[in-house]
Design a protein around this nucleic acid. Structure first.
Lengths: 348, 348
DNA sequence: AGGTAGCGTGGGAGCGCTCCCACGTTGATG
DNA sequence: CATCAACGTGGGAGCGCTCCCACGCTACCT
């Protein structure tokens, strides 16, 4: 029991003090060097750097966090509704982007998946307990209280995707309306006469934006928007199937479909096959997200690519700026909308 | 500047000391209550619990980590090779399982994606710097030095998937051989005469196990293993295509294919279509992983399901046991192999 | 010459905990 | 009635940092 105190990682790691002793300077000077303060003479800096290298010194994050009252940690929060609305590629791309950008800034990524109300509660405690420097929230629903909670307890936060047109919290979003418009314009250019759309749940802002884009494209082309060609679904495959059936029942002559997600497009495609409609000859199909599903469909699905990974990176950059300017609470919160791109494949 | 010291989250959060004062006890007693020590009188416990509730006290993790020399944190390390060998569902399922199980134990999940050698280096520093209580490693290649590094610096670690038959580090794996055997037995039962296989890279243990399962199933059925029906690929779609072409060239009469991954099966399926072979009438096809790709294929792909999420959970449980028994370094390291299950769909 | 910025520096204080020692206080024991 | 565990308890010491004050020193002013 004596002397063998358990060590999370590596017993006898050198401390600041030991580095200072070896370099023949004081603790303060070593700290200044470590943290890149300009207030250090060249001589001292070199001595410290040498000692650090020789001892293999790595500052202890826990001690740092306690003393400096920061965490060097950012939490990425992913609420997970019962149905896994967003396909996996979205999340893993976000994570990729976030991770890359955080690594750049030498920050840690704390991943928090919220499934149950209990876990939500736990997360709220985290915010005070663990000291995260900031929070990234993705896939937030319009009625989610989390962003406001964060706002209230003054934890810097950035949303991935707005909740509404007038989002009060800083956010990074992708150009849903633009992407949808582009997709529909493409279908029109291809000479399609009756372009239908399968939308996402319209209580989600992103879904509404995509619908707006669909409408805008039609109007720009001088066409009328036929409400019978619009069918709302829920971003799932089954929803896509149902919507497609209804659309075909109402407008059997439709010759193009813009689905607001690849997964819904996959569902629609199944129904089209069942009904003996060829893709793209009889009906052209375009999806949204450019996920793996799109590439594996037959024929491969034309889809709107969102630069999800870059969205993750952008979120981190915005968050870091927020953390930086913590004190000078400026009125205008940063916001950023990333472009989308149409990826043309065999289905249109 | 005075008084407005920046606070990661929540200024003026109550401290242990304040709780102690309010409860009319000493710091030690509060600490004991918080940590569930039995050495506390009922009276004191109640007083403390009341004070905690009234003040909304949440222990500070950084202080705790520093004082107790532990981190309450587990790192999940995902090395990301250039080609994203493993499909997304695998990782997100692992993450899901890990997250759920860690939440249970009130531990944090630190997600570490390693892309570049530089990030690898950074991670090595983490291990000493940040104090993680343990590390979970998935998708580790046979020649990966990381597990040995962890072993050396005595950080508890658990692998998801072995590197070889004689894995020295504790691991949780799924029954690759059994799953493959089951898939091939299924094809044999369906009356298929010439069952081919497209394997993963054979320097990966999982790929070798699946090939072993293939062989075992044939032998059990009293059949010979025809090496011409075996083609190695690399878990990618393109690899699946190439392998399928070679197999067809060598053995045009084959009537079944077991692909060691869904993605390779998707590639094979494309070639089969090009060659005018119907699935499943002419050639039955079975994949491995039961990913989204399998469900979206046409016809839907029969595939071997691995309970990836449970694998994540199991990894955490094993890791926690490892951390627990840190001191009494027992010789036998825990290992666990999870079962697989065949999901039958239209392709076979 | 004395005054005074300013820089580089050492080290005290303290972040909020856990650990552990030493101190009552009790009840069973000889 | 003294002796001794066993229990519950308070609080000192310290985890490894950062922050900041106060000190010496040089260089420049008047």
């Amino acid at each position: 029991m004596a002397g063998t105190r358990r060590r999370g990682a590596g017993r006898g790691r050198p401390t600041l003090e030991e580095v200072a002793a070896r370099a023949g300077v004081g603790r303060g000077t070593v700290s200044r060097v470590i943290n890149g303060s300009p207030q250090v003479s060249e001589r001292a800096r070199l001595a410290v750097e040498r000692a650090v290298a020789e001892l293999g010194y790595v500052p202890d994050r826990a001690a740092r966090a306690l003393a400096a009252n920061r965490a060097d940690t950012v939490a990425l929060v992913i609420p997970e509704p019962e149905t896994r609305l967003f396909a996996e590629p979205y999340f893993s791309d976000i994570i990729r982007g976030v991770s890359a950008e955080l690594a750049e800034a030498d920050l840690q990524l704390l991943l928090i998946l919220i499934r149950t109300p209990k876990e939500r509660q736990r997360f709220a405690e985290y915010l005070s307990a663990h000291r995260v420097d900031g929070v990234l929230l993705v896939s937030v629903h319009a009625d989610d209280p989390l962003p406001d909670l964060l706002e209230r307890i003054e934890v810097p936060a950035v949303l991935g995707g707005r909740r509404s047109a007038h989002e009060s919290v800083p956010y990074v979003d992708s150009d849903n309306a633009g992407g949808a418009r582009c997709a529909v314009e493409h279908l029109i250019e291809r000479g399609r006469a009756a372009v239908a759309t399968i939308t996402g749940p319209l209580d989600m802002y992103a879904a509404r934006c995509r619908l707006d884009g669909y409408r805008a494209a039609l109007r720009t082309a001088g066409r009328e928007v036929d409400p019978e060609l619009i069918e709302a679904a829920d971003f799932t495959e089954e929803g896509g199937r149902l919507a497609m059936r209804r659309l075909l029942a109402r407008r059997p002559r439709l010759d193009a479909v813009f689905a607001a997600s690849d997964v819904m497009a996959a569902g629609a495609r199944q129904v089209l096959r069942e009904e003996g409609r060829r893709v793209p000859e009889d009906v052209a199909l375009v999806g949204y997200e450019d996920s793996a599903v799109a590439r594996h469909m037959d024929p491969p699905l034309t889809s709107v690519r969102q630069t999800t990974q870059e969205m993750g990176q952008a979120m981190v950059r915005v968050l870091l700026r927020e953390i930086e300017s913590r004190s000078e609470r400026t009125a205008d919160r940063p916001r950023l909308v990333l472009p989308t791109e149409l990826v043309r494949r065999g289905s249109s």
